[in-house]
Amino acid sequence: MQVHFTRVSTPSSFRAGAAAGVEPAADGRGITVAAGASGSWTGPWVAPAFGIEELVASWNADAPPGALVEVEVQGRSPGHETRWYALGRWTYADDRRRRTSVPGQADADAAVEVDTLVARTPLRAYRLRVTLTAAAAPPTLRLLAAAASAGRADGEIASLPGAACGVELGVPAYAQSVHAGRYPELGGGGEAWCSPTSTAMVLAYWGSGPAPPDYAWVDPGCPDPWVVHAARHTFDHAYGGTGNWAFNIAYAAHFGLDAFVTRLRSLREAERFVGERIPLVASIAAAAGELDGFPLARGTAGHLVVVTGFAADGSPIVNDPAAESNATVRRIYDRRQFERAWIGGSGGAVYVISPPGKALPPSDGSW
């Protein structure tokens, strides 16, 4: 599998990009627009050394009530440029018109599957465009990035254990299952909240997330109300669920963290993050019987978990929100089975969430 991750919104690219109605943020960290105005910024063409089959964008932004952030992508192949595809319209506020993916985008070049651009034939380059729309207070974009990939792994995957064996991070354990049947308007209820529950665990690990006044609206009898808050503020009103990868990233970034989606190629790469004390939210898929000890006995086509460490033999230690209670969230999975479920299931998709300035491990292009 080939992966190319790019932070499109570097200071130099912000200066070089095409902009209309956009201005530098007052603190110098990003771009914004004037109150009541709208503006767009178009990034440079990015050309990985391979044909792009899939692309997922990430953004970190401050979006006060009424403000909107819309991210689009355009692809290019020899002699041809695609149309612009919307990868998401986002605001932190609970606004069904504004926090939504955009369905119905498919043509001969590509299709958008909720948060992911899937090319019909490999693209040679892409560029991103962001449009900021302000209400009384303007939005500010701090990060715009994308992970382009090609060649998902098939069959058996087995990396050898690395340096993080025996390291386990103290990530709080939250179970989505304790919310079963609650707030069904948010994607069918808590039993479907694997993504926001995983995001909430990582936020808590970093000592971040919503404060009690933020989730005062949650039923007082509901456990872990911050998980309900995450579900509400990651809910994609077009998709009808809380599993939009980009929206979970934007939610985490709302609390001052740096966050992005990328794809890793093996657990050896995941170990590098754990070695730097950074947990990862990983997207997996497993049929019945393919992952020993998996709480979803019937299997799943898509599920989010938190990789919190590695046992002495290299087996991944995982906080699996599908567990029946917080006390049973911690799991140790077979390394080969988990790697197959993760790399084979989602192409190694992860949320990387960490405080600003936190050093990431050395990379060869995946982050």
Rank of each mutant, 00 (worst) to 15 (best):
P356R: 01
E54W: 12
D258L: 07
S101D: 01
P65T: 04
D219F: 06
P78N: 06
G348H: 09
A250I: 02
L267W: 07
A145F: 02
D334S: 14
E191T: 12
V167R: 14
R272C: 09
P210N: 05
V33C: 11
E191Q: 15
S149V: 15
L169Y: 00
A164H: 08
R335Q: 05
E276V: 06
R98W: 11
Y92L: 14
Y351N: 03
G181M: 03
D107A: 06
V8D: 14
A34P: 01
A34M: 10
R272L: 14
P11W: 07
A349F: 12
M1R: 13
L360H: 06
T91F: 08
Y333P: 08
A253W: 08
W226S: 12
T234K: 05
G188A: 00
V202T: 10
R120C: 07
V69M: 06
R152E: 14
A148Y: 09
S58T: 01
R152S: 11
P279M: 01
Y351Q: 02
E23V: 14
A86Q: 13
G21R: 08
T116G: 01
E271H: 04
L87M: 12
A173Q: 14
V130T: 13
V329C: 06
R331G: 10
V56E: 13
P184D: 00
V171M: 04
W342R: 12
F5Y: 15
M1E: 10
P361G: 03
G21V: 03
G170S: 15
T234L: 09
A259H: 00
S149P: 11
E271K: 02
S195C: 14
P223L: 00
P223E: 00
